[in-house]
Amino acid sequence: MLDCKPASTPIEANHRIKADMGDPVDKGQYQRLVGRLIYLSHTRPDIAYAVSIVSRYMHDPRSTHLNAAYRILRYLKGCPGKGILFSNSRHLSIECYTDADWAGCLDDRRSTSGYGIFVGGNLVSWRSKKQSVVARSTAEAELRSMVSGICELVWLRLLLTELQLYKGG
């Protein structure tokens, strides 16, 4: 992959990846690659969603899934300097942003939730996860996403208060 052409995004827009698309590939190789991508996503929130998509198929990987994982590698090649950068903003205001894609998984029609939490303008917590139930509407999928983000937000606020770092209202 050293001579590959860099990609501008970690996954194609409006991707349509399903469980039974493509020919079977080496399961061990796929699992090692995706495992490394999962580890890398702890410091690269920009690939979290794409990694969550390819990690769904670790039990029966196909060529389409491997190509999606390779695209993540091509994206990483194009932006090696990206990552988390913390700056001193002299305030500890907490902000949370959430989103969901309604019925985004073509295999079981479940939605994917995601959130990002900023403390003092610095990203400190993020998550992208498939919802446990099928949402009946976009509003329900978005609500479930907001609930998971708010749960993390409340926990983080309590932690900062306990550490006597947050005195906000």
Rank of each mutant, 00 (worst) to 15 (best):
M1C: 02
M1K: 03
D3H: 11
D3R: 12
C4V: 07
P6W: 00
A7V: 02
P10V: 00
I11Y: 10
R16F: 09
R16H: 14
D26T: 00
R32L: 11
L33H: 11
L33P: 12
G35E: 12
G35M: 04
R36N: 12
H42P: 09
T43N: 09
T43C: 09
I47P: 15
A48P: 09
S55Y: 06
R56N: 06
R56Y: 01
R56E: 10
S63G: 06
T64V: 08
L66T: 08
I72E: 03
L73Q: 13
K77Y: 05
I84Y: 11
F86H: 15
S93N: 15
S93F: 14
I94Q: 06
Y97G: 06
T98H: 07
T98D: 01
A100G: 07
D101N: 14
A103T: 04
D108R: 00
S113T: 15
V119Q: 05
S132C: 02
A141T: 11
S145P: 07
M146F: 04
V147C: 11
V147A: 15
S148F: 07
C151F: 05
E152K: 13
V154L: 13
V154Q: 13
R157G: 00
T161R: 14
T161L: 08
L163F: 15
K167F: 07
G169A: 05
G169F: 10
